[in-house]
Amino acid sequence: MLLIHCPYCAEERPETEFAHAGEAHIERSTEMNALTDEGFSKFFFYRDNTKGTTFERWRHIHGCGRYFNAARDTVSDKFLTTYKAGEPKPDLSKLVDDQTNAGAKS
């Protein structure tokens, strides 16, 4: 069971308190009606399914109820960071460096 850091509660809590909510940073257009078929299918159907670092949404459904974003490595299952909804994607190169350093320390 993973431990997930909720950026709103500022606590690490067990995975069972959370619900996964798909890929992050997919913005719903404010002009939905004007989207082309291609634009809509990109928005709705296409996902990156990355091997490696992925940006994804989680909801602290059995906790504060908030949706937030996470950067997670889909190979090692490790969370690089979690951050509040609406915040920009974190700088990946910096995160990976932090991980390497943390790994070297332990």
Partner: peptide, 13 residues
């Protein structure tokens, strides 16, 4: 409720 919260928190905050 989950879907409503999702839109409220992330698309129409």
């Amino acid at each position: 409720l989950n879907m409503m919260e999702d839109y409220l928190q992330t698309e129409f905050p």
